[in-house]
Every structure is written in C-alpha cells, then in structure tokens.
Design a binder for these strands. Structure first.
Lengths: 200, 200
DNA sequence: CATATATACGGAACCTTGTTCCACTTATCA
DNA sequence: TGATAAGTGGAACAAGGTTCCGTATATATG
C-alpha cells in the first residue's frame, strides 16, 4: 500500500497530482528568494542564506532541488518567463513600435543580470543543457509577436527576424563586459531606431 | 631534453637570496602533483589531496600559492612550457615537415587536456589575466621556428604564419567539445598535409 | 467535526574543504 | 660548529553542503 509514486512534474500542470498548498507557496517563496540572493551575492551564495530569506529550512530546498544546479536552472527559467511575459503586457499598453523598443530594453536588463550566471551556464552540468533551447523557445516567439504587430502596423521594417535580433543584442551586451548598461542601451536604441520607417 | 625555464627567476636574481634547496624541490613536487590531481579530479580538487600527493603539508601550498588560482595558473604555465619545449626536441629528431606534424599533434593533446581548465580560465580572476599572453608568447615562436625550418627546407609552403595555425587548430579543437580526440587529430592532419608541397 | 495519514517542514548534526597559525625542523652561512 | 632565518607540517578553526528524522499540518474520509 505504500506505493510511493514519484510523479514529479515541474513543467506546467499540477492537475495530475494535487500538491499541498503550503508546499506550493514555499516553492514560490524559494524561487523568489533565490533570485534575490543570486543577484546580490552570486550563484555561489550559501544555501542557508537562501533558505533563511525564503523563511524555510534548508531541507525544503533540497527536497525541491536536489542539486544546486537545479535551483539555478529553475531561477533562470523563471527569469526567462518573466522577460517573455513582458512582451504581452507591452503589446497591450503601447503602440507596436514602442512595445518593441521597450521590450528590447527589458531584454537588455535580462542579459546584463544574467551575466553573473553566464560562467555557471557554460559548465557542463546536465541541469543546464536544456536551458539554451528554453531560452530560444520562450523569447523568440515573444519578440516575433511584437515584431509582426509593428510590421503590420507599418511602423517597422519587416526584413529582420526575432531570432536575428535576439542574437545581435546578446552579442552587443555580452562582449563589452564592463557592466556598462548605459552603453548597451544606447547601442540597442540605435539598432531599434534603424528599424523604423522614416517619416520623411 | 626540455629546457628548464623556471630554474631561476631572472628578474630578481641579484636582489633576492637564493632559495633553499629543499624549498625548491618541494615546489617542483607540488606542481607535478597538482598537474596530476587536476588531470584526474579537475581543478576543484581538495588542496589536501594535492598536498598529500606531493608529500608536503597544506601550509606549503599556501606559502607558494596564496590563492588557488595562482596554483592553477602555475600548472598551466608549466604545461605551456612543456609543449613549447617539445618543438626544439622534435626539430632535432625529425625532418622539418614531420617535426611540424608531430608538434601539431602534441599541441592538440595540450588543447584537449586544457579543456578542463577552460571554464576556470574564463573566470575573471586576476591570476588568469596574463595567461593568454603567455600562451602566445611561448607557443607562437616555438611553432614559427619549426615552420621556418620546414619552409627553408622546401618541405612546406611558406604562406601561413604560426599565429594563424595556432588559432585555427585551437578553433578545430574547442567547439567540437565531444572529447573526440581522434576527430580533432584527423582534421589537424588534413590541415598540415595541405601545407606540404606536392611531389607531382 | 473528528480522525487518520501521507506530505512537507525545520534545523540540528555531520561531513567535506578552505585557510590560518605556530611550534618545530633544517639549510645555509660565518 | 653553532647561530639564525627560511621553511615545514598539520592541528585547529571557519564555513558551507547535505542528510536525517521527529514534528507539524493539509487533505481525505467517516
């Protein structure tokens, strides 16, 4: 009778196996705390610090994320999601071209914040392998939607793909490395501006 | 025989007292042990393991290398030296073109072995900053000497520089990443073979 | 509501590793 | 052959990772 079904789902649905409400709340608090601590202290921050900030015990971390890399990967995914979701929000609140502009700046913020994780991501830990694919799968459609809207509204040229833009901006942000966000912002602004139709 | 470039620090030989013989011996044993342990366990291996293998106490490590990065850098330099010194040896034992061929294979071995250190090298630790320059300064002249000899002997084309070759082969080895040495070797062989004058 | 039980929790305890420190040893010199 | 300063080993301490289990509680059931 002790059928211990380890039906662990970490992707999107909790329909199969109702998770205890408090456990779910702790998981959310944990990811939020980890995100903050990683941003402040780096991904090597002590587990205890993360646990304390989330108001849980270290055991709770290890139950949800057996390896540190699992926690890092989860935080990364969460931030990718947050960035992608912003696209929809901007689409509803701004004119198409401005939505693109704002989203690209948001994307720059993401890239700069992610730089701390970059070296960790380049390790060969198995938990990190699917992350680049996830990155593309979430961000590319998000931006492509904004681009399509702006193109159909006649506000932007239509001859550049979301994929190319993502790569280009990532390239602009990564190598400068000096943490100079302002510099990156300026370059990206130039780039986006170049996409606009000139009203002349 | 490999030239011992670390015998005396040439820059401070008149100001500093000569180093105690046993200290020098310990330093050599330490570097050898670190090289072995890094190769077996990775650069994160416990200091105690390295100390035990070298037959010294951990204190001796910290006296010579205050930071772990210092020890890693020293091992790296030692391996660069070993690779560079091989050039002279091959030049004395083989025909010019074959010396080039053999050295390039030796260089492939070095690159593959170094892959474990690659992620560490890409950290922003100050101890690693001068390493790329050292890499070029040692390896480029070594290969250039072999190339010049082969060119003057009429065995190789003379229109490729040592620098270009080093970069090209490093590029061949790094991205494949699958640890497939045989694949890398085959590519490099093709490359070197292309440099030969066809006896036709 | 009361009770049963699987689930989840916290954090003390334990283990591994980094780093410091100093009493002791020894190479070198006069 | 001392005298002495350089060098040594490893115990001791610090800090973080990971495990384990008694306790607490959300949820299902009567």
């Amino acid at each position: 009778m002790a059928g211990n079904h380890q039906k662990n789902e970490s992707s999107k649905e909790q329909t199969e196996r109702p998770k205890r409400a408090d456990a779910q709340k702790n998981l959310v608090a944990l990811l939020q705390a980890a995100k903050e601590v990683f941003a402040e202290t780096g991904v090597d921050a002590p587990m205890r610090d993360i646990a304390r900030r989330a108001g849980v015990g270290v055991g709770t971390i290890y139950r949800n994320f057996p390896q540190r890399a699992d926690l890092i990967a989860a935080v990364f995914r969460q931030e990718v999601d947050a960035c992608a979701d912003t696209a929809e929000e901007f689409a509803q609140h701004y004119a198409p071209a401005e939505a693109v502009d704002r989203w690209m700046q948001r994307y720059v913020d993401f890239l700069v914040a992610k730089r701390g994780l970059a070296s960790a991501l380049h390790s060969d830990d198995a938990a990190f392998k699917p992350l680049p694919a996830y990155f593309d799968a979430r961000l590319e459609p998000a931006l492509q939607g904004l681009l399509n809207a702006a193109t159909e509204a006649g506000e932007l040229r239509g001859d550049v793909t979301a994929y190319d833009l993502l790569r280009a901006v990532a390239g602009l942000c990564t190598p400068s490395g000096h943490g100079d966000v302002a510099q990156a912002r300026r370059l990206v602004s130039l780039l986006i501006d170049g996409l606009r139709y000139r009203s002349e």
